Computed example of a mutant assay.
Amino acid sequence: MKIERFEEILAWQKAKELTKNIYKLLAPIKDYGFKDQIQRAAVSVMNNVAEGFERRSDKEFKHFLFVAKGSCGEVRSMLILAKELDYIEKNTCADLILETERISKMLSNFIKMLD
């Protein structure tokens, strides 16, 4: 199946859902520096998938997928801190971390396909 638009990429779709969930979950948090950082990292995952795809070069796409994967790790790191700061509950954190790990694996598989 040939992907015509980045919106068709499952990793982008999952990253978008993760981003929406993080925005909603952290809306009441008053630690604006923390909130801004995790939100920007989450947005970076989906946007790097989109930007890389739009470059129309496998080499550039692969680079942007690596950047997205790095941002996904940053989100995971921030989620761990959010739990330790009692910004989010343990179960919610575990669910979101699992989702970041799934997205990261999707990105890794996509990178392998471009090799």
Rank of each mutant, 00 (worst) to 15 (best):
53 F>R: 01
15 A>P: 10
64 F>W: 00
106 M>A: 05
34 F>N: 07
80 I>G: 00
109 N>L: 11
57 S>T: 02
33 G>R: 13
51 E>C: 00
83 K>S: 05
52 G>P: 04
41 A>K: 08
47 N>K: 12
36 D>P: 04
47 N>H: 07
74 E>C: 12
11 A>T: 01
69 K>E: 13
53 F>K: 01
95 D>H: 12
66 F>C: 01
113 M>A: 15
82 A>V: 03
106 M>V: 07
61 F>N: 03
28 P>V: 09
29 I>F: 07
106 M>P: 00
66 F>K: 10
77 S>V: 03
2 K>L: 07
9 I>H: 04
14 K>M: 06
62 K>R: 15
87 Y>L: 09
27 A>F: 06
49 V>N: 02
85 L>Y: 07
111 I>G: 08
111 I>W: 03
97 I>F: 08
28 P>Y: 13
102 R>V: 10
43 V>A: 08
38 I>F: 12
83 K>E: 13
98 L>S: 14
91 N>Y: 05
54 E>C: 12
7 E>L: 02
1 M>V: 14
55 R>L: 09
97 I>Y: 05
16 K>E: 08
41 A>Y: 10
83 K>F: 14
84 E>G: 04
58 D>H: 10
81 L>C: 06
47 N>D: 12
74 E>H: 10
40 R>M: 09
14 K>C: 00
60 E>C: 01
61 F>T: 03
3 I>W: 07
2 K>Y: 07
68 A>K: 03
55 R>D: 04
64 F>D: 00
111 I>D: 05
25 L>E: 14
83 K>C: 12
45 V>K: 11
69 K>Q: 15
16 K>Q: 13
63 H>K: 15
46 M>Y: 04
5 R>D: 12
17 E>N: 12
103 I>N: 05
9 I>G: 02
107 L>H: 06
24 K>H: 08
37 Q>T: 14
95 D>V: 10
10 L>R: 13
107 L>Y: 06
88 I>N: 01
34 F>R: 13
46 M>S: 12
23 Y>G: 01
71 S>Q: 09
94 A>Y: 05
98 L>C: 00
101 E>P: 03
15 A>I: 14
43 V>K: 08
59 K>N: 10
10 L>S: 04
18 L>K: 06
104 S>P: 00
25 L>P: 09
106 M>G: 01
109 N>G: 11
70 G>L: 00
54 E>K: 13
40 R>F: 09
71 S>Y: 07
4 E>F: 12
17 E>M: 13
15 A>R: 05
31 D>R: 14
33 G>V: 13
113 M>P: 00
